[in-house]
Amino acid sequence: MTHPHTFKHMREMSIANIFDRRNREVWMDLTGGQDVTERAYVEAERIIKEHKVAPLSEAAISIMDGVIKEFESQLEK
């Protein structure tokens, strides 16, 4: 916190999506009384439903193929 860069960017790393920092009365009204566990399940379901996996690069596929071939050759010995 003593460095200007840290102070400037501190909120970027502290975004509360599941934990609610407001007082209990406010979050009970806004969330319908969902507790942190319930909100975590909702968020997990959203991630599972919406997440798109980035395709692997040809280089990564090539490296993994090499590792697999090396492992398989060790099994044959």
Rank of each mutant, 00 (worst) to 15 (best):
T37S: 09
V53D: 10
F71D: 11
H51Y: 13
W27A: 02
M28W: 05
P55T: 01
R46H: 02
H51A: 12
R21T: 09
I63S: 07
I63A: 09
G32V: 05
R24D: 04
T37Q: 10
M10V: 15
H3E: 11
S73W: 09
K8I: 05
F19A: 15
V53Y: 10
L75A: 04
E72P: 05
A59I: 05
M10F: 15
R39P: 03
P55W: 04
H9N: 15
D20R: 07
V42Y: 07
V67L: 15
G32C: 04
G33V: 06
M64A: 12
S62M: 08
P55I: 06
M13R: 12
E70S: 12
W27R: 00
I48Y: 05
K8V: 08
T31V: 05
I47F: 15
V26P: 02
I15E: 12
E12P: 01
R24L: 07
H3N: 12
Y41S: 01
A59Q: 15
R46Y: 02
A40M: 04
D20K: 06
V67Y: 14
D35P: 01
N17I: 01
L56S: 10
I63Y: 10
L56W: 15
Q34Y: 06
D29A: 14
I63Q: 12
L56K: 12
D35M: 03
R22I: 03
T31I: 08
V36N: 01
K77V: 15
L56G: 04
E72R: 09
I15A: 07
S62R: 10
D35I: 00
F7R: 13
M13N: 11
L56R: 10
A59S: 10
I63T: 13
Y41Q: 09
E25W: 04
G33T: 00
I68P: 01
E76S: 13
K52V: 09
L75I: 11
S14R: 11
S62G: 06
E25S: 05
E45R: 09
D29P: 00
P55M: 08
M13S: 10
G33F: 04
M13G: 12
V53F: 12
M64H: 10
D29Q: 14
Y41A: 00
N23Q: 07
G33I: 02
E45T: 02
T31M: 06
M64S: 11
M1R: 06
A44H: 01
E12T: 12
I63H: 02
E38F: 02
V67G: 00
R11S: 14
F19N: 08
L56N: 08
I18H: 01
E45S: 11
I48N: 10
A60C: 04
M28F: 06
I15V: 14
L30E: 15
D20C: 07
I48L: 13
I61N: 10
T37L: 10
D35G: 07
H9K: 00
A16I: 01
M1K: 03
E50H: 07
E76Q: 13
H3F: 11
I47R: 14
I48T: 09
F71M: 13
E12K: 13
R22D: 04
K8W: 05
A60Y: 07
E25L: 01
Q74D: 13
R21Y: 09
V53Q: 11
E12F: 04
R46K: 13
E58P: 08
D35L: 03
Q74G: 07
D29T: 11
E72F: 01
E76K: 15
H5I: 14
Y41F: 09
